[in-house]
Design a protein around this nucleic acid. Structure first.
Lengths: 361, 361
DNA sequence: TGTTGGCACTCTTGCTCTTCGAGTGCTAAT
DNA sequence: ATTAGCACTCGAAGAGCAAGAGTGCCAACA
């Protein structure tokens, strides 16, 4: 159903004013500020119709109007100015982004923090790995009781583990095992690392001390860790600056749901890279999010790995600004992490450096 | 100044009841519940004196009494029942602890989360590394354009990085560099990895492609990363369930201070391992914490690395229970991470609560 | 001297009642 | 179709009031 041009303008005025002030918007205000050439009475009539159509509602009879989720949806779909970040702003963003990605660990956490800082809402970042395999095993012999396992994964991540043994092993055994594992454990998914396979490797190497089991266990652990998507949320406290969360119970409910992890973000794959998706109020599946909105952008980290950056806020959220920022952020990430083609702007990183992971224990 | 036995009992009653209910405690209640053989009038007299002495205060003339920071301090120093965790509870704790420490990465984050879950307050964990050095370099040659840098640090952590080069290198060069770095870059602190040293290595290896610089940069990066203490906070949202943070502004203030990082915890070293320290209200240095209390336990992660686990809450905090839990957690961590000698599982170390000068200002 | 019952006093909390103002819906005039 | 005008509604804010909890103090008592 098409609605008149004037209704659109009025709806826009209500949504944007409400986003700005969090107060119900009255007809008088619109008449004065949105420059349509008509009086508040006319606008009152229009507003009444918009309420009938379901785009607006009033908290009580003698208050101004507030957008419904349906109203926001119409606004987002058809009317929203698709903001673009200014040049300086974009550069600033990219500067901060590359600064953070240099950190050794936890780049996903850094991304999440950055998104939250930029938008001033709680933000959430996750990556979902395409199924990975081990591309290569290395075993560094440190001393008779100690060696370091290093595996290079198909997504170019490197994982390692320091292994200490109660008994001593000689270097040749380690060498032999390394060769065997590279022969039969590379390129296969976790499920195929069966006890049978492990056992046969053990025999082939004359390994009486269960080293094969240790190595295989590590491989399996690494692969299964990579399979579960990791999500990091940050900036939860920013919720509290929103007037709709002045009620500590509401705030607490949502915040503990958020800290619970990343069931928040929608299906990971059905988003084209650099696409931005908006979920308004009841459009969210989770009960806890029915009064909130979520904006998600996806990026492509190369090697089939997809990532999402999302932001959570009240339905009265600055969709336009947040969408623009997330979109720019996702684009920046895709550019930096994504497939081989070198980033156009990156004169400074001659070497393309890809992740690592510490271990410690 | 010594105060009478009865005053002590009354103070204890007030503190514990207030901790439980967050409501000012009246004389009648004490007369009925704390079984001293005297009437509410007597208690009123005693309460008035305790107010004069500065241990209690009343929000307004006709309300019950509430402990002052000084009152809490006296309670914590002299009167608190040193709680000990029950056997089952302790086992449960250790079970959950070892479960979490198995995770590949981010064990400090897991510790922080566990502490927060156990105590139901926001928790913070950090480690401060003793100065580390590289114990060993390994360079895994993957292909002509790619190799993996692996360094083993003096604290047994292993760090790695995948390096891709725009040009090709042969394996022998990599081998040579590896030997050279092991000869001159191991066992030295970051400051001694000077451009001069790097340059001389470069010449010694006939390295015209700046590989030495890449490797040295990685070593420096790793060492400097290890030097900065990392702190992870979690469970901030639990603040919101405390009545004293029903005011969203107060909650927001503290929460954003907390997410800001770990300036919260006090001097890291002057705590003996497994010691517990309590900072009450104004005893905290940070302005934002003057109305809150902090309980910290330290543990020894071996190799000179110290760690802290802390919990933040309102001054009306269950000092006894939280101190017991943190102490048990710290003991568990020391046992698992710490140097060779493992304290026997069952016997827990003596719980020492270290007082602070009640001066505050 | 320390303890206790009693009583007047104080101050918060929760309630109702009122006022005020913003914003509406409707009607009649343009 | 628009507009001015007006009566009406409803929430927010404040005043006033009663109830209740808890105190401080005094006089009596062991």
């Amino acid at each position: 159903m098409a609605i008149s041009e004037r209704k659109k303008k009025i709806l826009i005025a209500v949504v944007e004013e409400y986003i700005r002030t969090a107060e119900p918007v009255g007809s008088k205000h619109i008449a004065e500020h949105a420059k349509l050439g008509c009086s508040s009475a006319t606008i009152r009539n229009e507003l009444a119709e918009l309420v009938n159509l379901g785009y607006l509602e009033q908290p009580h009879t003698s208050a101004g109007r507030v957008p419904t989720p349906m109203g926001y949806r119409l606004y987002v779909n058809d009317m929203m100015e698709r903001q673009r970040l200014g040049m300086e702003e974009n550069e600033e963003l990219n500067r901060r982004l590359s600064q953070r990605l240099q950190k050794l660990d936890d780049s996903i956490g850094e991304v999440s923090r950055l998104a939250s800082q930029l938008t001033d809402y709680p933000a959430l970042a996750m990556t979902r790995q395409a199924p990975v395999t081990v591309r290569r095993f290395d075993i560094i012999y440190v001393d008779a009781n100690t060696f370091i396992l290093v595996v290079l994964l198909s997504n170019n991540a490197v994982k390692n583990k320091l292994v200490r043994l109660p008994i001593s092993v000689d270097a040749s055994m380690v060498q032999k095992l390394s060769t065997l594992f590279n022969a039969s454990f590379t390129g296969i998914p976790e499920e195929q690392m069966t006890p049978v396979l492990i056992h046969s490797t053990e025999r082939a190497a004359d390994d009486t001390m269960g080293l094969s089991a240790v190595i295989a266990a590590f491989a399996i652990e690494v692969l299964s860790e990579s399979a579960i998507p990791t999500a990091v949320i940050s900036g939860e406290n920013r919720l509290l600056s929103q007037p709709e969360f002045r009620d500590p119970d509401k705030a607490h409910e949502l915040m503990s749901y958020l800290s619970g992890g990343g069931h928040i973000l929608p299906a990971p794959d059905n988003l084209a890279p650099n696409d931005v998706k908006v979920l308004i109020g009841p459009e969210n599946v989770a009960e806890e999010l029915k009064n909130s909105s979520v904006i998600v952008a996806s990026y492509d980290a190369g090697d089939g790995t997809k990532g999402l950056i999302g932001v959570v806020g009240p339905t009265r959220m600055d969709y336009s600004a947040v969408a623009a920022k997330l979109s720019a952020l996702a684009a920046g990430l895709s550019r930096r992490l994504g497939g081989g083609e070198a980033p156009p702007e990156g004169m400074h990183n001659k070497l393309i450096i890809k992740g690592d992971e510490p271990d410690g224990r």
